[in-house]
Design a protein around this nucleic acid. Structure first.
Lengths: 225, 225
DNA sequence: GGTCGCCGTCAGGACAGCGTCAAGAACCGC
DNA sequence: GCGGTTCTTGACGCTGTCCTGACGGCGACC
């Protein structure tokens, strides 16, 4: 199901969009301000974003810039202002489309479909997770650090993928074992320790003092951005 | 220089667009009706099209459909009608954007830039992939190296095409087998190894130390530019 | 303060997967 | 039918990956 992130500070409009989009088969994620929007974006990686330009905390264009730094996901801007200069700014900042309020739901949906269609024909548009030290491209199955591709073995990649998909959350040893090595493996004979050390050596700036691949003693491991 | 095809039956608007676009560094091609537009499109292959929806002979949507049958070039529709249904039809028919008359030249130019940027970032638009060592023309099914066409067998081409279409991404052995040999083949009996070696011999400067046709042990293969 | 469990580290052996080669089978155009 | 191209297959050496066991450090708990 296609996930769409809707960012707008008007509760009525949010609800209207939620209902219309859900009826069209979209999975709808709602955010009322820029901070919430960016957090939701990072954690859920939606396929498309509808972004109001006037937000209580951050400017819509700032949110757009932050999204563009880590993704090429289609973004449709909403605005109450018909001013032509605003449109120009938004489109040049990397917006894919610009719709002025009030708008017909039909038109918005059509522009949504057009944006998704364009994104679908572009093969590259993969979800990308960016940290301060490296970038993980889940679709391409590759990691980029200092501009170069870091070579990972299948097991290393399997662990990293599992951790990144659950970024921010704790993943137990048992979960990792079952996911990477298969359901039969549930007791650990230090596979994990060896491979996690390997990942840290390849990815962490200071492998001895990890920032992203965190271990929670006696619980499991955690990936932080 | 970016070529833009402008299709509109109003001479004044045509001239205005021609002047503005030429001042912005575009090469402008003008057509006054649908037939002329399609002819010009086929012969000149412009990078972007601005297409009025109301034309004397063909409907703008028909022209759009004809273009879409042979190209994914960005098309921006113009219309005097603010009717929401028209926008929906145009966008669903494959238009990339929709601008209602009268419009500000700034806005049109911004939408033009946005459309071109999208097309540039979508590798799908350019069916030619260039590397440091050779050039792959996906549309013409040709590979050129050192100025000469490299002869590839159908199977070799199938593998290369699959890899190039997913350039940068990892492609698993199973995916390759299914795509090139058909869905029935899912286990590898060293077809891949033989043909990949063949491709490397024909394309890589150092076949023993490949730069573009990379293998990720136990995972699959990857095409790098 | 000692013991115990958990984690990180290291190095080495086993082995599956990869690259390579060459020869036979299948296919195609003439 | 014939020559040439293309595809398939088997064998073999080698490299990268995986797993293992041993060791040391650290904190928790008794």
């Amino acid at each position: 199901m296609t996930r769409v992130l809707v960012v707008d500070d008007e509760p009525q409009l949010r609800r209207a969009l939620q209902i219309s989009l859900r009826a069209r088969g979209f999975e709808v994620l709602l955010a009322a301000d820029g901070t919430e929007a960016l957090h939701l974006f990072r954690t859920t990686q939606p396929e498309i974003v509808i972004l109001d330009i006037g937000l209580p905390d951050l400017d819509g264009l700032e949110v757009l810039a932050a999204i563009r730094r880590q993704s090429t996901v289609p973004v449709i801007m909403l605005s109450a202002r018909v001013d032509s200069a605003d449109k120009v700014d938004a489109l040049d900042a990397g917006a894919d489309d610009y719709v002025t309020k009030p708008f017909g739901m039909d038109e918005l949906l059509a522009r949504l479909r057009a944006a998704i269609r364009r994104a679908d024909t572009a093969p590259d548009a993969g979800p990308v997770v960016v940290t301060a030290s490296f970038t993980v491209d889940l679709a391409a199955k590759k990691v980029i650090r200092d501009g170069a591709v870091v070579h990972l073995t299948p097991t290393e990649w399997g662990m990293l993928e599992m951790l990144v998909r659950h970024r921010g959350r704790l993943v137990t040893q048992t979960e990792l074992l079952r996911e990477v090595w298969g359901p039969a493996y549930s007791t650990e004979s230090n596979y994990l320790r060896v491979y996690l050390a390997q990942l840290r050596r390849k990815l962490e700036p200071e492998p001895g003092n990890p920032r992203h691949l965190i271990t929670d003693q006696r619980m499991g491991y955690r990936f932080e951005l």
